[in-house]
Design a protein around this nucleic acid. Structure first.
Length: 450
RNA sequence: UCCGGAAUAGCUCAGUUGGUUAGAGCAUCUGACUGUUAAUCAGAGGGUCACAGGUUCAAGUCCUGUUUCCGGAGCCA
Protein backbone atom coordinates (compact mmCIF):
# COMPACT_ATOMS: atom_id res chain seq x y z
CA UNK A 1 0.00 0.00 0.00
CA UNK A 2 1.23 3.45 -0.79
CA UNK A 3 1.69 5.61 2.30
CA UNK A 4 -0.97 8.25 2.65
CA UNK A 5 1.54 11.10 2.55
CA UNK A 6 3.76 9.89 -0.28
CA UNK A 7 3.06 9.80 -3.97
CA UNK A 8 5.19 6.73 -4.54
CA UNK A 9 5.54 3.10 -3.49
CA UNK A 10 8.38 1.71 -1.36
CA UNK A 11 10.11 -1.35 -2.75
CA UNK A 12 9.90 -3.16 0.59
CA UNK A 13 6.16 -3.62 0.07
CA UNK A 14 6.18 -4.15 -3.68
CA UNK A 15 4.84 -7.71 -3.52
CA UNK A 16 1.61 -6.31 -2.04
CA UNK A 17 1.00 -4.41 -5.28
CA UNK A 18 1.03 -7.19 -7.90
CA UNK A 19 -1.08 -6.22 -10.88
CA UNK A 20 -1.08 -2.53 -9.96
CA UNK A 21 0.65 0.40 -11.58
CA UNK A 22 3.15 1.94 -9.16
CA UNK A 23 5.56 4.84 -9.00
CA UNK A 24 9.01 4.09 -7.58
CA UNK A 25 11.77 6.50 -6.66
CA UNK A 26 15.31 5.33 -6.21
CA UNK A 27 18.85 4.84 -7.37
CA UNK A 28 20.07 2.48 -10.07
CA UNK A 29 21.97 -0.30 -8.33
CA UNK A 30 22.91 -2.21 -11.44
CA UNK A 31 21.91 -2.39 -15.09
CA UNK A 32 22.14 -5.09 -17.72
CA UNK A 33 21.41 -4.47 -21.37
CA UNK A 34 20.23 -7.31 -23.55
CA UNK A 35 19.35 -5.88 -26.99
CA UNK A 36 15.71 -4.94 -26.89
CA UNK A 37 15.56 -5.63 -23.14
CA UNK A 38 16.99 -3.51 -20.33
CA UNK A 39 17.13 -4.64 -16.72
CA UNK A 40 17.37 -1.96 -14.05
CA UNK A 41 17.90 -2.94 -10.43
CA UNK A 42 16.40 -0.08 -8.48
CA UNK A 43 17.37 0.61 -4.87
CA UNK A 44 15.30 2.93 -2.69
CA UNK A 45 16.68 2.25 0.78
CA UNK A 46 13.86 -0.10 1.67
CA UNK A 47 14.84 -2.78 -0.82
CA UNK A 48 15.89 -3.58 -4.37
CA UNK A 49 13.48 -4.17 -7.24
CA UNK A 50 14.17 -5.42 -10.73
CA UNK A 51 12.60 -3.17 -13.35
CA UNK A 52 12.37 -4.35 -16.94
CA UNK A 53 12.18 -2.13 -20.02
CA UNK A 54 11.12 -4.01 -23.17
CA UNK A 55 11.61 -1.97 -26.32
CA UNK A 56 8.40 -2.88 -28.20
CA UNK A 57 6.29 -2.03 -25.11
CA UNK A 58 7.52 1.52 -24.49
CA UNK A 59 7.95 4.78 -26.32
CA UNK A 60 11.26 5.10 -28.21
CA UNK A 61 12.60 7.81 -25.86
CA UNK A 62 11.86 5.72 -22.75
CA UNK A 63 14.00 2.88 -24.08
CA UNK A 64 16.76 5.31 -25.05
CA UNK A 65 16.63 6.81 -21.56
CA UNK A 66 16.90 3.35 -19.99
CA UNK A 67 20.10 2.74 -21.98
CA UNK A 68 21.72 5.89 -20.58
CA UNK A 69 21.24 4.93 -16.92
CA UNK A 70 24.41 4.33 -14.94
CA UNK A 71 25.09 2.93 -11.49
CA UNK A 72 23.61 5.22 -8.78
CA UNK A 73 21.75 7.46 -11.21
CA UNK A 74 18.55 8.63 -9.54
CA UNK A 75 15.21 8.02 -11.27
CA UNK A 76 11.47 7.85 -10.88
CA UNK A 77 9.94 4.85 -12.56
CA UNK A 78 6.30 4.18 -13.35
CA UNK A 79 5.30 0.66 -14.25
CA UNK A 80 3.18 -2.37 -13.49
CA UNK A 81 4.12 -4.88 -10.81
CA UNK A 82 4.00 -8.54 -11.79
CA UNK A 83 5.01 -11.84 -10.30
CA UNK A 84 8.02 -13.24 -12.15
CA UNK A 85 9.94 -16.32 -11.12
CA UNK A 86 13.12 -15.24 -12.89
CA UNK A 87 13.32 -11.96 -10.95
CA UNK A 88 15.15 -11.75 -7.61
CA UNK A 89 12.49 -11.63 -4.92
CA UNK A 90 9.85 -13.05 -7.25
CA UNK A 91 8.40 -9.71 -8.41
CA UNK A 92 9.44 -7.18 -11.00
CA UNK A 93 8.21 -3.96 -12.51
CA UNK A 94 7.29 -3.70 -16.19
CA UNK A 95 8.42 -0.16 -16.91
CA UNK A 96 6.21 2.36 -18.69
CA UNK A 97 7.88 5.69 -17.88
CA UNK A 98 11.24 6.83 -16.58
CA UNK A 99 12.02 10.27 -15.22
CA UNK A 100 15.70 10.90 -14.63
CA UNK A 101 16.48 12.98 -11.55
CA UNK A 102 20.20 12.88 -12.23
CA UNK A 103 22.66 10.77 -14.20
CA UNK A 104 25.58 9.65 -12.01
CA UNK A 105 28.92 9.58 -13.75
CA UNK A 106 31.73 7.18 -12.77
CA UNK A 107 30.36 5.99 -9.42
CA UNK A 108 33.50 4.80 -7.65
CA UNK A 109 32.17 1.70 -5.88
CA UNK A 110 31.59 -1.01 -8.45
CA UNK A 111 30.08 -4.46 -7.85
CA UNK A 112 33.65 -5.86 -7.77
CA UNK A 113 36.04 -6.02 -4.82
CA UNK A 114 37.61 -2.97 -3.22
CA UNK A 115 40.27 -2.40 -0.61
CA UNK A 116 39.53 -1.22 2.93
CA UNK A 117 41.24 2.14 2.54
CA UNK A 118 39.33 2.93 -0.64
CA UNK A 119 36.01 1.97 0.90
CA UNK A 120 36.72 4.05 4.00
CA UNK A 121 37.56 7.08 1.85
CA UNK A 122 34.18 6.56 0.23
CA UNK A 123 32.31 5.72 3.43
CA UNK A 124 29.56 8.19 2.51
CA UNK A 125 28.88 6.12 -0.61
CA UNK A 126 29.82 2.71 0.81
CA UNK A 127 26.79 3.01 3.12
CA UNK A 128 24.61 2.39 0.03
CA UNK A 129 25.98 -1.14 -0.42
CA UNK A 130 23.75 -4.03 0.68
CA UNK A 131 26.12 -5.26 3.36
CA UNK A 132 26.52 -1.85 4.98
CA UNK A 133 22.79 -1.25 4.64
CA UNK A 134 22.12 -4.48 6.54
CA UNK A 135 24.61 -3.68 9.31
CA UNK A 136 23.09 -0.23 9.84
CA UNK A 137 19.60 -1.73 10.09
CA UNK A 138 20.82 -4.18 12.74
CA UNK A 139 22.50 -1.31 14.56
CA UNK A 140 19.26 0.67 14.58
CA UNK A 141 17.40 -2.36 15.93
CA UNK A 142 19.98 -2.82 18.69
CA UNK A 143 19.60 0.84 19.67
CA UNK A 144 15.84 0.41 19.84
CA UNK A 145 16.21 -2.79 21.88
CA UNK A 146 18.48 -0.97 24.33
CA UNK A 147 15.97 1.84 24.80
CA UNK A 148 12.98 -0.51 25.01
CA UNK A 149 14.70 -2.72 27.57
CA UNK A 150 15.47 0.08 29.98
CA UNK A 151 12.33 2.13 29.34
CA UNK A 152 10.28 -1.00 29.97
CA UNK A 153 12.06 -1.92 33.20
CA UNK A 154 11.61 1.20 35.26
CA UNK A 155 14.75 3.06 34.16
CA UNK A 156 14.74 6.78 33.49
CA UNK A 157 16.87 8.19 30.69
CA UNK A 158 19.23 10.74 32.27
CA UNK A 159 21.88 11.69 29.75
CA UNK A 160 25.29 12.80 30.96
CA UNK A 161 27.12 15.80 29.51
CA UNK A 162 29.59 15.35 26.68
CA UNK A 163 31.65 18.39 27.66
CA UNK A 164 33.17 17.73 31.06
CA UNK A 165 35.50 19.74 33.29
CA UNK A 166 37.83 16.94 34.28
CA UNK A 167 38.72 13.38 33.72
CA UNK A 168 36.79 10.47 35.01
CA UNK A 169 39.96 8.41 35.19
CA UNK A 170 42.81 10.80 34.36
CA UNK A 171 43.20 13.17 31.38
CA UNK A 172 45.77 11.40 29.22
CA UNK A 173 43.24 9.74 26.95
CA UNK A 174 40.82 12.64 26.59
CA UNK A 175 40.16 15.01 23.74
CA UNK A 176 40.74 18.51 24.95
CA UNK A 177 39.04 21.75 23.95
CA UNK A 178 38.95 25.37 25.12
CA UNK A 179 35.93 26.35 27.17
CA UNK A 180 35.56 30.16 27.15
CA UNK A 181 37.14 31.71 30.25
CA UNK A 182 36.87 28.55 32.32
CA UNK A 183 39.94 26.84 30.92
CA UNK A 184 39.98 23.41 29.39
CA UNK A 185 37.03 21.15 28.81
CA UNK A 186 37.19 17.52 27.76
CA UNK A 187 34.99 15.27 25.67
CA UNK A 188 33.47 12.69 27.97
CA UNK A 189 34.95 9.21 28.04
CA UNK A 190 32.15 7.93 30.26
CA UNK A 191 28.95 9.30 31.71
CA UNK A 192 29.21 7.09 34.75
CA UNK A 193 29.98 9.58 37.53
CA UNK A 194 27.03 11.70 36.43
CA UNK A 195 25.02 8.50 36.11
CA UNK A 196 25.66 7.77 39.77
CA UNK A 197 24.36 11.19 40.76
CA UNK A 198 21.31 10.66 38.51
CA UNK A 199 20.61 7.25 40.07
CA UNK A 200 20.49 8.87 43.51
CA UNK A 201 17.70 11.07 42.13
CA UNK A 202 15.76 8.51 40.07
CA UNK A 203 16.67 5.09 41.46
CA UNK A 204 17.41 3.41 38.15
CA UNK A 205 18.72 5.44 35.23
CA UNK A 206 20.62 4.98 32.00
CA UNK A 207 22.69 7.30 29.90
CA UNK A 208 23.12 6.62 26.20
CA UNK A 209 25.26 8.66 23.89
CA UNK A 210 28.62 9.11 22.24
CA UNK A 211 31.83 8.85 24.24
CA UNK A 212 35.34 9.75 23.24
CA UNK A 213 38.70 8.18 23.90
CA UNK A 214 41.93 9.67 22.63
CA UNK A 215 43.72 6.35 23.10
CA UNK A 216 46.07 5.59 20.27
CA UNK A 217 44.45 2.24 19.78
CA UNK A 218 44.75 0.72 16.37
CA UNK A 219 42.81 -2.52 16.37
CA UNK A 220 39.65 -3.85 14.81
CA UNK A 221 37.68 -3.24 18.01
CA UNK A 222 38.52 0.40 18.81
CA UNK A 223 37.02 3.69 17.73
CA UNK A 224 37.91 7.12 19.12
CA UNK A 225 34.21 8.02 19.14
CA UNK A 226 31.70 5.34 20.03
CA UNK A 227 28.30 4.98 21.61
CA UNK A 228 27.92 3.61 25.08
CA UNK A 229 24.86 2.85 27.16
CA UNK A 230 25.43 3.04 30.89
CA UNK A 231 22.75 1.95 33.37
CA UNK A 232 23.26 2.89 37.01
CA UNK A 233 21.10 1.46 39.79
CA UNK A 234 20.76 2.49 43.44
CA UNK A 235 20.70 -0.43 45.89
CA UNK A 236 22.06 -2.89 43.28
CA UNK A 237 24.98 -5.00 44.44
CA UNK A 238 27.38 -6.80 42.14
CA UNK A 239 25.22 -9.90 41.68
CA UNK A 240 22.20 -7.78 40.77
CA UNK A 241 24.39 -5.90 38.33
CA UNK A 242 25.52 -9.13 36.65
CA UNK A 243 21.96 -10.48 36.51
CA UNK A 244 20.78 -7.29 34.85
CA UNK A 245 23.63 -7.42 32.32
CA UNK A 246 22.64 -10.97 31.36
CA UNK A 247 18.96 -10.10 30.96
CA UNK A 248 19.91 -7.06 28.92
CA UNK A 249 22.25 -8.79 26.49
CA UNK A 250 19.88 -11.72 26.03
CA UNK A 251 17.11 -9.26 25.20
CA UNK A 252 19.23 -7.42 22.63
CA UNK A 253 20.30 -10.58 20.82
CA UNK A 254 16.84 -12.14 20.82
CA UNK A 255 15.28 -8.89 19.58
CA UNK A 256 17.67 -8.76 16.63
CA UNK A 257 16.92 -12.40 15.84
CA UNK A 258 13.21 -11.62 15.90
CA UNK A 259 13.27 -8.52 13.70
CA UNK A 260 16.37 -8.73 11.49
CA UNK A 261 16.38 -12.23 10.00
CA UNK A 262 16.70 -10.90 6.46
CA UNK A 263 19.64 -8.64 7.29
CA UNK A 264 21.44 -11.41 9.19
CA UNK A 265 20.97 -13.64 6.13
CA UNK A 266 22.40 -10.91 3.87
CA UNK A 267 25.39 -10.75 6.19
CA UNK A 268 25.82 -14.52 6.10
CA UNK A 269 25.59 -14.64 9.89
CA UNK A 270 25.35 -18.09 11.51
CA UNK A 271 22.25 -17.46 13.61
CA UNK A 272 22.38 -20.79 15.41
CA UNK A 273 25.21 -19.26 17.44
CA UNK A 274 23.03 -16.27 18.35
CA UNK A 275 20.07 -18.48 19.22
CA UNK A 276 22.16 -19.98 22.02
CA UNK A 277 22.55 -16.60 23.72
CA UNK A 278 20.08 -17.29 26.53
CA UNK A 279 20.43 -16.99 30.27
CA UNK A 280 22.22 -18.14 32.31
CA UNK A 281 25.55 -17.06 30.83
CA UNK A 282 28.85 -18.40 32.11
CA UNK A 283 30.46 -16.79 35.12
CA UNK A 284 33.85 -17.13 36.73
CA UNK A 285 35.87 -15.06 39.13
CA UNK A 286 39.16 -13.54 38.03
CA UNK A 287 40.93 -15.93 40.40
CA UNK A 288 39.19 -18.94 38.83
CA UNK A 289 40.10 -17.60 35.38
CA UNK A 290 43.77 -17.34 36.33
CA UNK A 291 43.70 -20.91 37.65
CA UNK A 292 42.08 -22.04 34.41
CA UNK A 293 44.73 -20.28 32.32
CA UNK A 294 47.55 -21.91 34.22
CA UNK A 295 45.92 -25.33 34.20
CA UNK A 296 45.50 -25.03 30.44
CA UNK A 297 49.02 -23.76 29.90
CA UNK A 298 48.07 -20.35 28.52
CA UNK A 299 51.23 -18.38 29.12
CA UNK A 300 51.87 -14.67 29.39
CA UNK A 301 54.42 -13.08 27.05
CA UNK A 302 56.65 -10.93 29.19
CA UNK A 303 59.25 -8.54 27.85
CA UNK A 304 62.56 -8.66 29.65
CA UNK A 305 64.97 -5.79 30.22
CA UNK A 306 67.11 -6.88 27.25
CA UNK A 307 64.10 -6.74 24.92
CA UNK A 308 63.62 -10.47 24.49
CA UNK A 309 60.29 -12.08 25.31
CA UNK A 310 59.79 -14.98 27.62
CA UNK A 311 56.68 -16.97 28.43
CA UNK A 312 55.67 -17.23 32.05
CA UNK A 313 52.80 -18.68 34.06
CA UNK A 314 50.02 -16.13 34.34
CA UNK A 315 50.61 -14.25 37.61
CA UNK A 316 47.65 -13.37 39.85
CA UNK A 317 47.31 -9.59 39.80
CA UNK A 318 48.07 -9.01 36.12
CA UNK A 319 45.19 -7.77 33.92
CA UNK A 320 44.05 -9.99 31.07
CA UNK A 321 45.05 -9.09 27.54
CA UNK A 322 43.44 -10.15 24.28
CA UNK A 323 45.23 -13.55 24.19
CA UNK A 324 43.96 -14.53 27.65
CA UNK A 325 40.39 -13.43 26.95
CA UNK A 326 40.37 -15.30 23.65
CA UNK A 327 41.69 -18.47 25.27
CA UNK A 328 39.03 -18.36 27.98
CA UNK A 329 36.21 -17.69 25.51
CA UNK A 330 37.17 -20.46 23.10
CA UNK A 331 35.42 -22.98 25.34
CA UNK A 332 32.13 -21.06 25.45
CA UNK A 333 29.26 -20.48 23.02
CA UNK A 334 27.53 -17.98 25.29
CA UNK A 335 28.91 -14.80 26.81
CA UNK A 336 30.91 -15.15 30.01
CA UNK A 337 31.11 -12.73 32.92
CA UNK A 338 34.43 -12.50 34.73
CA UNK A 339 34.14 -10.82 38.12
CA UNK A 340 36.19 -9.73 41.12
CA UNK A 341 39.34 -8.47 39.42
CA UNK A 342 42.39 -7.37 41.42
CA UNK A 343 41.61 -3.90 42.72
CA UNK A 344 45.05 -2.69 41.62
CA UNK A 345 44.16 -2.94 37.91
CA UNK A 346 40.69 -1.46 38.25
CA UNK A 347 39.32 2.07 38.51
CA UNK A 348 39.30 4.07 41.74
CA UNK A 349 35.52 4.20 42.09
CA UNK A 350 35.03 0.43 42.26
CA UNK A 351 34.15 -1.00 45.64
CA UNK A 352 36.48 -3.53 47.19
CA UNK A 353 35.11 -6.91 48.10
CA UNK A 354 34.50 -6.87 51.88
CA UNK A 355 35.39 -10.57 51.92
CA UNK A 356 38.68 -10.03 50.12
CA UNK A 357 39.95 -6.43 49.83
CA UNK A 358 42.51 -7.47 47.21
CA UNK A 359 39.74 -7.73 44.65
CA UNK A 360 37.26 -5.16 43.40
CA UNK A 361 33.55 -5.84 42.88
CA UNK A 362 34.07 -5.43 39.15
CA UNK A 363 32.79 -7.46 36.24
CA UNK A 364 33.41 -7.68 32.50
CA UNK A 365 31.23 -9.51 30.03
CA UNK A 366 33.07 -11.20 27.18
CA UNK A 367 31.15 -12.17 24.05
CA UNK A 368 31.89 -15.44 22.23
CA UNK A 369 33.20 -15.97 18.67
CA UNK A 370 36.22 -13.77 19.32
CA UNK A 371 34.10 -10.66 19.85
CA UNK A 372 35.74 -9.86 23.20
CA UNK A 373 34.70 -7.45 25.90
CA UNK A 374 31.34 -5.77 25.40
CA UNK A 375 30.53 -4.78 28.99
CA UNK A 376 32.54 -3.39 31.86
CA UNK A 377 30.88 -2.66 35.17
CA UNK A 378 31.11 -2.70 38.93
CA UNK A 379 29.57 -2.03 42.28
CA UNK A 380 30.70 1.48 43.22
CA UNK A 381 32.51 2.50 46.36
CA UNK A 382 29.85 3.98 48.63
CA UNK A 383 31.99 4.75 51.70
CA UNK A 384 33.07 8.38 51.94
CA UNK A 385 36.48 7.79 53.54
CA UNK A 386 37.40 4.86 51.31
CA UNK A 387 36.51 6.78 48.15
CA UNK A 388 38.33 9.93 49.23
CA UNK A 389 41.46 7.96 50.02
CA UNK A 390 41.24 6.22 46.62
CA UNK A 391 40.95 9.57 44.78
CA UNK A 392 44.04 10.84 46.59
CA UNK A 393 46.08 7.68 46.05
CA UNK A 394 45.30 7.85 42.32
CA UNK A 395 46.67 11.43 42.26
CA UNK A 396 43.34 12.81 41.15
CA UNK A 397 42.46 16.43 42.02
CA UNK A 398 40.19 16.20 45.04
CA UNK A 399 38.43 19.51 44.37
CA UNK A 400 37.12 18.22 41.03
CA UNK A 401 35.53 15.29 42.81
CA UNK A 402 33.86 17.16 45.67
CA UNK A 403 30.47 16.94 43.97
CA UNK A 404 31.02 13.21 43.45
CA UNK A 405 31.92 12.79 47.12
CA UNK A 406 28.67 14.56 48.00
CA UNK A 407 26.89 11.43 46.82
CA UNK A 408 28.61 9.67 49.76
CA UNK A 409 27.86 12.51 52.16
CA UNK A 410 24.15 12.73 51.59
CA UNK A 411 22.38 9.40 51.73
CA UNK A 412 25.01 7.06 50.36
CA UNK A 413 23.72 3.65 49.31
CA UNK A 414 25.17 0.57 47.67
CA UNK A 415 24.87 1.02 43.91
CA UNK A 416 26.14 -0.52 40.72
CA UNK A 417 26.18 -0.06 36.99
CA UNK A 418 27.89 -1.01 33.79
CA UNK A 419 28.68 0.27 30.32
CA UNK A 420 27.94 -1.56 27.10
CA UNK A 421 29.77 -0.55 23.94
CA UNK A 422 27.24 -0.26 21.13
CA UNK A 423 29.64 -0.75 18.24
CA UNK A 424 31.27 -3.81 19.80
CA UNK A 425 27.84 -5.30 20.31
CA UNK A 426 26.90 -4.58 16.69
CA UNK A 427 30.20 -6.13 15.58
CA UNK A 428 29.53 -9.30 17.53
CA UNK A 429 25.90 -9.71 16.46
CA UNK A 430 26.47 -8.90 12.78
CA UNK A 431 29.75 -10.80 12.61
CA UNK A 432 31.46 -7.77 11.09
CA UNK A 433 35.20 -8.19 10.69
CA UNK A 434 36.05 -4.69 11.80
CA UNK A 435 34.38 -2.18 14.11
CA UNK A 436 34.62 0.49 11.38
CA UNK A 437 31.66 -1.19 9.65
CA UNK A 438 29.41 -0.83 12.71
CA UNK A 439 29.22 2.97 12.87
CA UNK A 440 27.98 5.01 9.89
CA UNK A 441 30.86 7.47 10.06
CA UNK A 442 33.55 5.86 12.21
CA UNK A 443 36.25 7.93 13.84
CA UNK A 444 39.63 6.26 14.17
CA UNK A 445 43.11 7.35 15.06
CA UNK A 446 44.22 7.82 11.46
CA UNK A 447 40.91 8.70 9.86
CA UNK A 448 38.46 11.55 10.29
CA UNK A 449 37.23 11.88 6.66
CA UNK A 450 34.54 11.81 5.43
C1' U B 1 53.93 4.49 21.17
C1' C B 2 56.08 -0.39 19.61
C1' C B 3 56.43 -4.65 15.96
C1' G B 4 55.36 -6.32 10.96
C1' G B 5 53.51 -5.41 5.87
C1' A B 6 52.05 -2.45 1.59
C1' A B 7 51.91 1.74 -2.19
C1' U B 8 51.89 0.19 -10.37
C1' A B 9 45.28 2.63 -14.88
C1' G B 10 39.04 5.11 -11.61
C1' C B 11 39.00 -0.04 -8.74
C1' U B 12 41.39 -5.08 -7.65
C1' C B 13 45.99 -6.84 -8.93
C1' A B 14 50.32 -9.21 -12.09
C1' G B 15 55.09 -7.40 -13.57
C1' U B 16 60.86 -13.11 -13.68
C1' U B 17 68.00 -12.09 -12.35
C1' G B 18 67.84 -4.47 -13.14
C1' G B 19 67.24 -4.69 -19.95
C1' U B 20 63.14 -2.73 -25.95
C1' U B 21 56.91 0.61 -26.39
C1' A B 22 54.55 -1.28 -18.20
C1' G B 23 50.00 -5.74 -18.61
C1' A B 24 45.09 -8.30 -17.14
C1' G B 25 40.04 -8.28 -15.16
C1' C B 26 36.33 -4.86 -13.72
C1' A B 27 34.58 0.25 -14.51
C1' U B 28 34.01 4.06 -18.76
C1' C B 29 32.88 4.92 -24.21
C1' U B 30 31.18 2.55 -29.28
C1' G B 31 28.64 -1.69 -31.54
C1' A B 32 25.67 -6.80 -31.36
C1' C B 33 21.94 -9.63 -28.60
C1' U B 34 14.20 -10.77 -25.64
C1' G B 35 15.65 -12.93 -19.45
C1' U B 36 20.20 -10.52 -17.18
C1' U B 37 21.48 -11.83 -11.71
C1' A B 38 29.38 -9.76 -10.90
C1' A B 39 25.62 -11.35 -18.38
C1' U B 40 28.35 -12.51 -22.89
C1' C B 41 30.91 -11.17 -27.52
C1' A B 42 33.79 -7.40 -30.73
C1' G B 43 36.47 -2.78 -30.49
C1' A B 44 38.43 2.01 -28.17
C1' G B 45 40.39 5.43 -24.64
C1' G B 46 42.85 5.45 -19.93
C1' G B 47 49.83 5.44 -16.41
C1' U B 48 54.19 11.54 -12.83
C1' C B 49 54.91 2.91 -11.30
C1' A B 50 53.31 7.40 -3.64
C1' C B 51 57.16 11.51 -3.10
C1' A B 52 62.48 13.08 -2.83
C1' G B 53 67.36 11.69 -3.45
C1' G B 54 71.13 7.90 -4.67
C1' U B 55 73.72 3.47 -7.25
C1' U B 56 73.98 2.01 -12.59
C1' C B 57 75.27 2.21 -19.59
C1' A B 58 70.17 1.09 -17.95
C1' A B 59 65.53 1.36 -12.11
C1' G B 60 58.39 -0.25 -11.50
C1' U B 61 62.49 -3.68 -9.90
C1' C B 62 68.41 -2.24 -5.82
C1' C B 63 69.75 1.53 -1.57
C1' U B 64 68.42 5.86 1.85
C1' G B 65 64.84 9.18 3.65
C1' U B 66 59.75 11.03 3.75
C1' U B 67 54.47 10.48 3.36
C1' U B 68 50.09 7.66 3.36
C1' C B 69 47.57 3.21 4.31
C1' C B 70 46.86 -1.92 6.29
C1' G B 71 47.47 -5.81 10.20
C1' G B 72 48.88 -6.81 15.27
C1' A B 73 50.34 -5.41 20.53
C1' G B 74 49.37 -2.32 24.79
C1' C B 75 44.95 0.47 26.68
C1' C B 76 39.89 -0.13 26.87
C1' A B 77 33.73 -0.57 25.64
Amino acid sequence: MASSYKSFQTIERLSEAIGQEVTLNGWVYDTTGKGKLQFIKLRDGSGIAQCVVFKPNVAEEVFETAKTLTQESSVRIVGTVRAEERAPGGVEVDVKEIKVWQIAKDYPITPKEHGDAFLMENRHLWLRSTRQHAIMRVRATIVKAIRDFFDGNGFTLMDSPILTPAACEGTSTLFETDYFDLGKAYLSQSGQLYGEASAMAQGKIYTFGPTFRAEKSKTRRHLTEFWMVEPEMAFFELNDDMDLAEDFVEYIVQTVLKHRQQELATLGRDITKLEKVKRPFHRMSYTEAVEWLNKNNVKLNKKQADGTEIQIDFPWGEDFGAPQEEAIMEQFEKPCIIHRYPSEVKAFYMKRDPENPKVALAMDMLAPEGAGEIIGGSQREDDFEALKERILSHDLPLESFEWYLDLRRYGSVPHSGFGLGLERTVKWITGAEHIRETNPYPRMIYRIQP
